[in-house]
Design a binder for these strands. Structure first.
Lengths: 144, 144
DNA sequence: TGACAATGGTTCGTGTGCGAACTATCTTTT
DNA sequence: AAAAGATAGTTCGCACACGAACCATTGTCA
């Protein structure tokens, strides 16, 4: 992180604090084996109605496939996820949430809501919208 | 990262993109052995006029001391930094930039500036200020 | 059909980051 | 001055993340 004192540093710090908050809350709820980093994969799987190929997960999760491999293995070890081979293509492996995994839905939503409200505090609706728009703009600027 | 689509996710993505930009620029400038993660330590050392105890680095860098130990070792391996024992207290070790390390100053400033300008794009001064204020507020909200 | 390319996943090596345990050296207490 | 405690750094074990190499399998096309 260059620009430690500028906006980039600020954004970095916010992200770290948000992360820490989520980790604390997971611990407080006694949810084992899940850390904030699994959020992307989990969020994606929660939106699925049926098993999806690991490749699909990779495409939606902004993580390299080797990373997804081990994330899924971890989730599997803790019983949140189940893998199964495709019957039509021996290369592909499907993943889906187990009952235990689907059980995270509520916590997931509550933690998201908690984070949002902690983060915004008593900021007005107008300001929130403006802020998100500005962040959109920044994100777009960095993406070109 | 819970809240993948909300503001927290947005901030996470911005941070990752900013990071990637810095890494690319370091590569482009053929600066070896430095990555964005060293920025904190480097920025701090660039501000110092004389050797500082590693403890001081730890206190300013928002990283745990074991992390700082290895960051400094890495910087040392690449010749950006030099360590020396204190003569009055055998427990403390001082760190300082080498000439090669100080040589990064200009790149550091240029990359910071590049990042800032890429990030803000053509956003007005007023909007920039407002944005930073809002981010300050968010950071404070998360810190309580 | 048989070589070659593309695809889906895993493995391996490396870097970052954390916390806990450890070593060595001061400092304080009694 | 000896015991207990505090402080400075390092090491160790672990998890995440990346990229490169690798393995099977499937597709392509000559």
């Amino acid at each position: 992180m260059v620009d430690v004192n500028g906006i980039a540093g600020q954004i970095g710090r916010i992200r770290e604090k948000a992360n820490a908050l989520v980790e604390d809350e997971l611990k407080r709820r006694n949810i084992k084996g899940i850390v904030a980093a699994h959020g992307h994969v989990l969020a994606f799987l929660l939106r699925q109605k049926r098993p999806v190929a690991i490749r699909e997960v990779v495409e939606h999760v902004r993580r390299v496939k080797s990373t997804v491999t081990v994330t899924i293995r971890t989730l599997e070890r803790h019983g949140y996820v189940r893998k199964s081979p495709s019957e039509t293509d021996a290369r592909v492996t499907y993943v889906e949430l187990t009952a235990k995994g689907r059980g995270l839905q509520k916590d997931f939503e509550e933690i998201s809501e908690m984070l949002r409200s902690r983060l915004y505090g008593d900021m007005s609706e107008k300001d929130r919208e403006r802020l998100v728009r500005q962040l959109d703009r920044i994100e777009a600027n960095l993406s070109q």
